[in-house]
Write a protein that binds this DNA or RNA. Structure first.
Length: 293
DNA sequence: ACTAGCCCCTGGGAGC
DNA sequence: TGCTCCCAGGGGCTAG
């Protein structure tokens, strides 16, 4: 599923391939994908607009257009953008069918024969068309916590953010109001690296442990961005290529595999287990990560 | 302010 | 091989 690194990869691709282009036509195949306004108004307002600035905030991609409009997107589970040339063999009226993707929910025909597809298998992803100066008032964006990859987001800052919450550590990591952009994959990986059980309650963790966890969050997100994301759940970039971080994952999706940690040169004897924490599938090594009570 | 439970959806895995 | 059943999972929402 797309988390910060996958969304960052997409944002960079969209910026690289379509920034500066003008929207000539809009096709909506699933109206619920458009959170606001109505599909008709969405089309009407977008045609003729130029895509200017493209950036990421948490797991959102924001595309600023001319005339004070912004297209905000969230991928949820399976959404992604895809950039493709207009098919020369296709019927001009059915431009949105190329390349063939039965999961394209919204498509934008751009100038210079390019098409931007917004594809989403499970139909959970959303697009919002809002006035640029209203973005900061969107509830989902307004509540977002700090960006974990910003230089000023130090391990101390992480401790400070996390200390504003209570309860189990994993749901706090997943809470976008605490730190923006962390999802199930990087939460599990970071907890594993820090040797912290996801069910450990915050008041049982001291600042030193939280600091290590903060370092691991940053390390994992940085590495994943470098590798173009993880391609778990068929994530691909805007050119349809897989991310390469999947091969670096150590616990996520590794149920039944031996733990990859070494102690004093010897491999850990643990086997990766899948448990459920806060209604989410969670991967741990029962030897490296013990709950503190 | 917290947690549990439901909802949105579909592909894919399990079971037969 | 092919059918049906079941369910993950981000985040919004409601109820307790």
């Amino acid at each position: 599923m797309p988390e910060l690194p996958e969304v960052e990869s997409q944002a960079r691709d969209v910026k690289r391939w379509v920034a500066g282009h003008i929207i000539k036509e809009v096709w909506v195949g699933w109206t619920k994908t458009i959170a606001t306004p109505s599909a008709a108004l969405f089309k009407k307002k977008l045609i003729g607009r130029r895509l200017k600035k493209v950036y990421r905030r948490g797991k959102f991609i924001i595309i600023d257009l001319d005339k004070g409009l912004s297209l905000v997107s969230h991928f949820r589970m399976t959404g992604h953008f895809r950039v493709a040339p207009v098919s020369q063999s296709a019927s001009a009226a059915r431009w949105y069918l190329y390349p063939p993707d039965r999961f394209t929910r919204v498509a934008f025909m751009l100038d210079h024969d390019l098409v931007l597809h917004f594809s989403d298998i499970r139909k959970f992803a959303r697009l919002w068309l809002v006035a640029t100066d209203r973005i900061r008032h969107m509830p989902a964006l307004a509540k977002l916590g700090p960006e974990p990859l910003e230089p000023k987001f130090t391990p101390d800052k992480f401790v400070q953010c996390v200390r504003g919450y209570s309860g189990m550590i994993k749901p706090v990591l997943l809470n976008q109001a605490c730190v923006a952009g962390i999802g199930n994959i990087y939460a599990d990986e970071s907890l594993f690296d820090a040797g912290v059980h996801p069910k450990t309650r915050l008041d049982k963790l001291d600042d030193a442990q939280l600091k290590v966890l903060g370092q691991m969050v940053k390390k994992n997100l940085t590495a994943a961005v470098k590798h173009g994301g993880s391609s778990v759940g068929d994530f691909v970039n805007a050119k349809g290529e897989s991310g390469k971080h999947g091969m670096y994952l150590r616990v996520y999706g590794k149920k039944g595999e031996p733990c990859r940690r070494h102690r004093n040169g010897k491999p850990c004897a643990g086997t990766v287990k899948r448990i459920v924490v806060a209604q989410r599938g969670t991967h741990i090594c029962p030897i490296c990560q013990k709950v503190k009570r």
